Simulated scan of single mutants.
Amino acid sequence: MLQFFNVTKIYPGSIKALSDISFRVDKGEFVFLVGASGAGKSTLLKLLTREEVPTNGQILVSGKNIVRFRGREVPLYRRKIGMVFQDFRLLPNKTVFENVAFALEICGLSGKQLKERSMYALERVGMAKKADRFPAELSGGEAQRVAIARAIVNNPMLILADEPTGNLDPDNSLAIINLLKEINYTGTTVIVATHDAFIVDSFRQRVIALKDGKLVRDEESGAYAG
C-alpha cells in the first residue's frame, strides 16, 4: 500500500531528520513506529501526510508518488487519511457530534448522510450516547475515542496515530489500541507512532524502529526494544 524508497529529509541548518529510509507497508497491516524523541517518527508521519516533502527519495501510496502531487491533489489525498493525535485536537466549542461531523462538512457533505455517517462513527467507538457533550465534559479516554471517530468518519484507507496514548493511563491506553486494532480488522491500514514500550510489548505487532533518523529494525512481531 505504501512504500518509502531511500527517503532522506534534511531541514534548514543541515539537520538530518531521516537518512536513506526504505520500507513497505501492505494494505491492512498494523504497524508500530517506535523510537526515542528526535528519532524521526514525527517527520516520517509528516511526509506521509504531505506536510513535508523529502529532500531525496520517493514515497508511493496506493501506487501514486505523493512527492509529485501538486495543487488540489494534496487535499484530496489527505481526505483518504485519518489522523489521531496525542492531544486529541477536538474543537472545544463544538459538541462530540459536531467535532466528528465537521470532518465531513469540510468535504462538502451535508444533511441526512452527514448525520448517519457521523453517528455510525461514534457508535463504532462507543461514544454515540455522548454525542451532545462538549470536549471539556469528557475524560481523556473518551476524548481520544471521539478523535478516532473523527479519523474514521471518511472511511480512510490509512490511519496515522501520533502518540495516541501519550496522555492516557495504562487501562485507557490498552483500550485505545484495542479500538485501533478493531478498525484495522476491517481492512484499514494503521500506523501508530509511539514510545510506549508497554503498549508495543502487549500487542506484538510489526515494529519499525528508528534511531537518529535511521531505520534500525523491522520485525513482523516485535517488542519495543528487541
Rank of each mutant, 00 (worst) to 15 (best):
L2K: 10
F4T: 01
F5Q: 15
N6H: 14
V7Y: 05
V7R: 11
T8Y: 09
T8N: 09
K16T: 14
G28P: 05
G28Q: 10
F30W: 04
F30N: 03
G35A: 05
A39Y: 03
K41F: 04
L45W: 06
E52A: 12
E52Y: 10
N56F: 12
L60P: 04
V61Q: 12
S62P: 00
S62T: 03
S62N: 15
K64S: 12
I66M: 12
V67W: 13
R68D: 10
G71W: 09
R72K: 15
V74L: 12
L76D: 13
R79I: 08
G82V: 12
M83R: 14
D87E: 14
R89C: 02
R89E: 11
L90S: 01
L90M: 05
L90Q: 04
T95C: 08
N99H: 00
V100Q: 00
A103K: 08
L104F: 01
I106F: 11
G108R: 12
S110L: 10
K112H: 11
K112V: 12
L114H: 01
K115R: 15
E116S: 13
S118I: 03
A121E: 00
L122R: 03
L122A: 05
E123D: 09
E123K: 15
R124N: 02
G126R: 11
A128W: 02
A128K: 15
K129C: 06
D132W: 07
R133W: 10
F134A: 03
A136K: 14
E137F: 04
A147C: 06
A149I: 00
A151K: 01
V153W: 00
N154K: 15
P156D: 05
D162W: 06
E163K: 07
P164F: 08
P164W: 06
N167F: 03
L168K: 01
P170C: 05
I176W: 05
L179E: 00
K181Y: 09
N184Q: 10
T189D: 06
V192E: 03
T194Y: 02
I199N: 04
V200W: 03
D201A: 05
R204L: 12
V207W: 07
V207H: 05
L210H: 06
D212V: 04
G213P: 00
K214S: 13
E220D: 10
E220I: 10
Y224T: 04
Y224F: 14
A225W: 13
G226N: 13
